[in-house]
Nucleic acid binder design. Structure first.
Lengths: 157, 157
DNA sequence: ATGGTCTCCGATCAATAAGGTCGTATTAAC
DNA sequence: GTTAATACGACCTTATTGATCGGAGACCAT
């Protein structure tokens, strides 16, 4: 349960790869193309391409067209959070269906629902966790870091 | 993203209802049947029945057959965690596909994956959160409680 | 004890989303 | 102009979810 999609998985792998190539010690600043990533991690090429296009559309990476083209991070690795990556691919975080309902529409006709509030607390906690982790935390050159833990306090009803 | 299924949603509502009826002030010890819950929350009857059957099979509730039958909590409300409920319906918690792989099978042929370890940390953190919340935290008679926040420390690689 | 009712239970079906594929257009380097 | 790369859109295939149907078993009243 609570599984993230494979597309999101691919996005994380790809960004981790781009980040380590771009900011690593070996060949800093290099542009990396789709094929390279697909072969490295055995990801279907066309599917990965779609994922990268989505990431580019959401301004997480920049695309360079033509020969010797490829993708480059749009920001520094520590400025790209895991939450941003996942939300780019899978849409906004939402534990339940009623998480992002506009006013006027309710989940189950009438507000008999007593579990909404506590579930939203859980959701916030997860959101804080994913927002506190960045791409840099997944890079090879960063052996050990400490991440501020989320807090869920005051769950009512 | 990270949305839980409607079945799990129904399970939470149903258990919350059973718990408040059983341990609440109004009619303590009462047995509650599927139809009552379905009508109260506008849940498809047969689908809810299946959910409750699953919960009974996982020993979270006890089923009483025949007229005046229905369901009763198998344990006290504070001994049933949200994680147990969700896992009963949706299977074990797993952010990625490679979360519960038996030895021998790897996600993407070979272990080039650099995101596995940090993702497992995220998963553990969510698991701790869901295990720290119980049904009691969702009951009406419990206005305000404090939940121990999960900790993610030492994300490496 | 036996009929009738009420419940749980198992198998089945339809809708939706995910995962993956293919072909073509567009862009930039040489 | 040719080549090599991304961009874009349509399509298919499969798996999961959501929902439905009919029957089996248990309890209570008579």
């Amino acid at each position: 349960m609570l599984k993230i999609s494979k597309k999101a998985d691919y996005a994380l792998m790809a960004l981790q790869h781009i980040a380590t190539v771009q900011f690593g010690d070996v060949t800093p600043g290099r542009v990396v193309n789709t094929k390279e990533i697909a072969e490295e991690y055995n990801i279907p090429l066309e599917l990965l391409a779609k994922v990268l296009q989505t990431l580019a559309k959401n301004a997480l990476i920049e695309s360079h067209n033509g020969p010797k083209g490829g993708y480059v991070l749009a920001r520094r690795a520590h400025q790209i959070t895991i939450a941003q990556i996942l939300e780019s691919i899978e849409g906004p975080l939402g534990i339940t269906d009623c998480s992002h309902e506009k006013d006027g529409e309710f989940c189950m006709q009438r507000e008999n629902c007593h579990i909404r509030t506590p579930l939203l607390k859980v959701q916030d906690s997860i959101a804080q966790l994913l927002n506190s982790m960045t791409l840099q935390d997944m890079m090879g050159g960063t052996p050990l870091i400490t991440i501020q833990s989320p807090a869920v306090q005051g769950v009512e009803r």
